[in-house]
Structures are given as structure tokens and as C-alpha cells.
């Protein structure tokens, strides 16, 4: 009874642990880095896209105010978390400049979401419209950037 049990536990833990070891490896390969960039910019696009839909429908009177406030805040939080992990990653030597570009774009996206959040909870219709336009523009910019940095994938 004892030995098969131990073996079973080992059989479960081994792939898990090796998997963890593989993932937390410090040196990021070039393709691994591209995946990471793709994922993070994808998260930014996702947050901006959601916010765009939310703001548009707020303008149409489709959504309640409390919902809009929470939904935009959720987008902000999701992106902030992604950006934080991305910032702590060390890129391969050839991609340092790329990371700087990406980080700048991500910082801009966060700022845009922040002002969108303020506008959405406020009563100023004009400010909301500006925020929506800004979100739409940033969404486009990030899509272009994602294509450029990841070589067309995603």
C-alpha cells in the first residue's frame, strides 16, 4: 500500500515541479519573450477593447452607472497586474529596446484607462466622449504595435 501511494504522489508531483522549474527559468529565450510581449499587449488590447464597448454602450444608455464603474475598474486592474509581471521580466539582449517601447505604450494605456474611469463615473458627457475617442485610438495603436513587435502573429 505504502509504496504505490508514494509512487503515485511522485508521479503527480514530478511533472508539476519540472513544469514549474521550466517556467520560472531566469533566462528567457527569444521566442519565449515574443510570447510574453504578445500576451501582455494582448491583455492591454483586451482591456481597452472592453472599455471601448462599455463606454460606447454607456453613451447609448445601455448600461447602469455602477456597472460601468466596476467594469472599467476591472479592466484597469487586469491590465495593471499584467504590466507589473511584464515589467519584472528580463528581455534577451536584442530585445531591450522593444521592451522599452512596449512599456511606454502600456504606461500610456494605463493612463488612458485611468482617465476613462474618471470620465465614466463623472457626469460630464463631453469628457466621456473624449475618453472614448482616446480609448479607441490607443486600441488601434497597441494593435499596430503588437503586430510590429511580434512579427505579425496574434
Amino acid at each position: 500500500m505504502r509504496r504505490p501511494l508514494a509512487l503515485a504522489i511522485l508521479a503527480v508531483l514530478l511533472p508539476v515541479l519540472t513544469g514549474c522549474g521550466l517556467r520560472s527559468g531566469a533566462a528567457v529565450s527569444e521566442s519565449g519573450w515574443t510570447d510574453k510581449v504578445d500576451q501582455t499587449l494582448g491583455a492591454a488590447i483586451s482591456s481597452l477593447g472592453t472599455t471601448e464597448v462599455v463606454l460606447k454602450n454607456q453613451a447609448n444608455g445601455h448600461l447602469t452607472r455602477s456597472y460601468v464603474v466596476v467594469a472599467v475598474r476591472d479592466s484597469q486592474r487586469t491590465l495593471a497586474k499584467e504590466v507589473q509581471t511584464f515589467g519584472s521580466k528580463q528581455p534577451p539582449a536584442s530585445k531591450v529596446a522593444d521592451k522599452r517601447t512596449a512599456m511606454r505604450a502600456l504606461g500610456h494605456a494605463l493612463a488612458v484607462l485611468d482617465s476613462a474611469s474618471n470620465a465614466a463615473s463623472g457626469a460630464d458627457i463631453a469628457a466621456r466622449r473624449t475618453a472614448l475617442l482616446e480609448v479607441e485610438r490607443t486600441y488601434q495603436e497597441l494593435s499596430t504595435l503588437q503586430t510590429r513587435l511580434t512579427g505579425g502573429g496574434g
Binding site: G42, A43, I45, S46, G49, T50, E52, V53, V54, N57, G61, H62, L63, T64, Y67, V70, A71, D74, S75, R77, T78, S143
Partner: peptide
């Protein structure tokens, strides 16, 4: 969400399609 490339990461996003389609009552 498919055409926009949006990933679902929060419950608010799950409800969004209903709000878009059916407005405040649907929401």
C-alpha cells in the same frame, strides 16, 4: 469579444454582451 480580441478576466465582462444587446433591463 471574438472580433475585438478581448479576453474574459472578470465577471463584469461576462455580463457585458447582455447589456449591449438588451440594455439596462437585460443587465
Amino acid at each position: 469579444f471574438g472580433p475585438l480580441g478581448v479576453d474574459v478576466a472578470s465577471l463584469s465582462q461576462v455580463a457585458l454582451p447582455v447589456g449591449v444587446a438588451l440594455g439596462k433591463i437585460g443587465l
